[in-house]
Amino acid sequence: MSPRVGVVTFPGSLDDRDAQRAIRLAGAEPVALWHGTTDLSKVDAVVLPGGFSYGDYLRAGAIARFAPIMASIIDAANDGMPVFGICNGFQVLCESHLLPGALTRNDHLHFICRDQKLRIENTTSAFTYGFNTNQEIVIPLKNGEGSYIADERTLDELEATGRIIARYIDGNPNGSRRDIAGITNEAGNVVGLMPHPEHAVEAGFGPSLDGLTFFTSVLSRLVNA
């Protein structure tokens, strides 16, 4: 039986169907999860998709963090379940304190959508396991509040412990500290990424197929676990 990967829909989630499609193409069974319940439907991993949950009111991710389903996800993540936050999902993970730091307004103050080159620097996390060290990939980036920020000590620690999973190369699109595009927690099971791998999983749609590896990585972990 193929692993079941949940995708949470909050009010205002936008890339939830896209994430489900990516999970299907990677060979797993996508399971729709609703923000208003605490039921994780026995999934093996969870994706928090991109979008504007609750309109991004107050602060991006700040309200979603209090959704009933997040209590279950925080518990499961602390027990080792793989959790992948993409864009708004990354913001939710930071607001939930599953990941350190915060995502703030792009330094140029505009929303930006472009094909972005990244270097994968961590190949041990649950979602980057399938990449080669320092592999360069191109996937879409689209955000208005994508500038990663944390205090210097946290940034040093993320670097020292290899928890920066990907950095922007050929131009920082939003002012992120130390060109950070994504990070993981100490255990490597919770990953946040600002660009959108789910939009680079099919020939003819998106700039590459590089995004698929994020989803196949977690599958190989789950199948081999």
Partner: peptide, 17 residues
């Protein structure tokens, strides 16, 4: 025109050819 069009999301829904 990408100064303008890069402010729009062209990828969401995953069907943009």
């Amino acid at each position: 025109k990408s100064w303008i069009t890069s402010q729009y999301d062209r990828y969401v829904l995953g069907n943009t050819a």
